[in-house]
C-alpha cells in the first residue's frame, strides 16, 4: 500500500517535472537544427588481422578513421550548439563489445560516463585528455561496469592497450549535441530561437563552425563540408 503510494507520488512528480520542462522549453521557443555533414574524400577504414582473443574479437577488425555513408554523408562527426543550455543530462554509456568501442563516438554532457565491458576478457580504459584527468584503469572480465567522471568540455580519445586497434571518442560537450548517423545527419533538438553557433567536430578532419538562424517550432537545415587534411 505504502509502496504503491510512493511509486504513485514519484510518477506524479516525474510527469510534473517533464511537463514543466516541456513548457519552459516551449516558452523559450526552441527549434530543431538538422545538421548535415558531408565529406568528398575517400573513406579511411583500415582492416586488420587479429591475433589474440579471436573468440571475442573475431579474426579481422577495422579501424574506422573516416566513415563515409550514403550521399557522401560523414558518420561519427559531432554536431553541437554550444549556446543551447538545458540539454538532457542522461548518463552517457560506452560499451566494449567485440573488442570495439560502441558507439565509436559517445556524446555527453560534462558529468559521469558508464563504461561497460561485455566481452568477458580484460580491457583497459586508457583516455588521452588534457582538460580532464586522464584515466588508465584495468577492466578485467568480472568488472562489468565502471563509472568515471569527465567534467570539462573536451574530445577525449579512448584506447585499450590490450587490443591496440580499439579506438573510441567521448565528446564532452556542453549544450545540445549529437553524433552524425551513417548518412552524416545529426538532429539537435530544442535549440533556442535566434542566432546560434553550430559546431562540427570530427576525429581526423577537425572542426568547423557556422551560424544559423533558428526558428521556433520548425526545422532549420545547415550543411557542412569537411575537408581532408
Amino acid at each position: 500500500m505504502r509502496k504503491g503510494l510512493t511509486i504513485g507520488t514519484a510518477v506524479a512528480l516525474v510527469t510534473g517535472a517533464a511537463m514543466w520542462f516541456a513548457t519552459t522549453v516551449g516558452a523559450q521557443g526552441g527549434g530543431t537544427v538538422e545538421v548535415e555533414v558531408k565529406y568528398n574524400g575517400a573513406p579511411q577504414v583500415e582492416k586488420l588481422k587479429v591475433n589474440k582473443d579471436t573468440e571475442k574479437c573475431g579474426t579481422e577488425t577495422t579501424i574506422e578513421k573516416v566513415v563515409v555513408g550514403g550521399n557522401k554523408g560523414l558518420a561519427n562527426a559531432v554536431a553541437s550548439a554550444p549556446g543551447a543550455k538545458g540539454a538532457s543530462k542522461a548518463k552517457a554509456v560506452i560499451d566494449q563489445h567485440g573488442c570495439k568501442f560502441v558507439p565509436h563516438v559517445v556524446v555527453m554532457q560534462p558529468g559521469e560516463i558508464e563504461i561497460k565491458n561485455s566481452d568477458d576478457i580484460l580491457h583497459n580504459i586508457h583516455t588521452y585528455s588534457t582538460a580532464n584527468p586522464s584515466i588508465n584503469k584495468a577492466q578485467p572480465k568480472f568488472k562489468k561496469v565502471m563509472t568515471e567522471k569527465l567534467e570539462k568540455p573536451e574530445f577525449v580519445k579512448v584506447t585499450c592497450d590490450v587490443h591496440s586497434w580499439m579506438l573510441g571518442w567521448v565528446a564532452v560537450v556542453p549544450g545540445v549535441a549529437a553524433a552524425t548517423d551513417t548518412n552524416g545527419v545529426a538532429k539537435l533538438e530544442n535549440v533556442p530561437a535566434g542566432k546560434q553557433k553550430i559546431e562540427v567536430w570530427h576525429e581526423t578532419l577537425g572542426k568547423q563552425e557556422k551560424e544559423v538562424d533558428v526558428k521556433a517550432g520548425s526545422v532549420t537545415k545547415v550543411s557542412f563540408e569537411m575537408k581532408g587534411k
Binding site: N124, I125, H126, N136, K137, A138, P140, K143, M146, D161
Partner: peptide, 16 residues
C-alpha cells in the same frame, strides 16, 4: 595505481 604514461593500468578498483 598503475604506471603513468604507460599501458600499465591501475588495478586498485579492478580486483575482486
Amino acid at each position: 595505481n598503475g604506471v603513468l604514461g604507460t599501458p600499465m593500468p591501475a588495478f586498485l578498483d579492478s580486483v575482486e
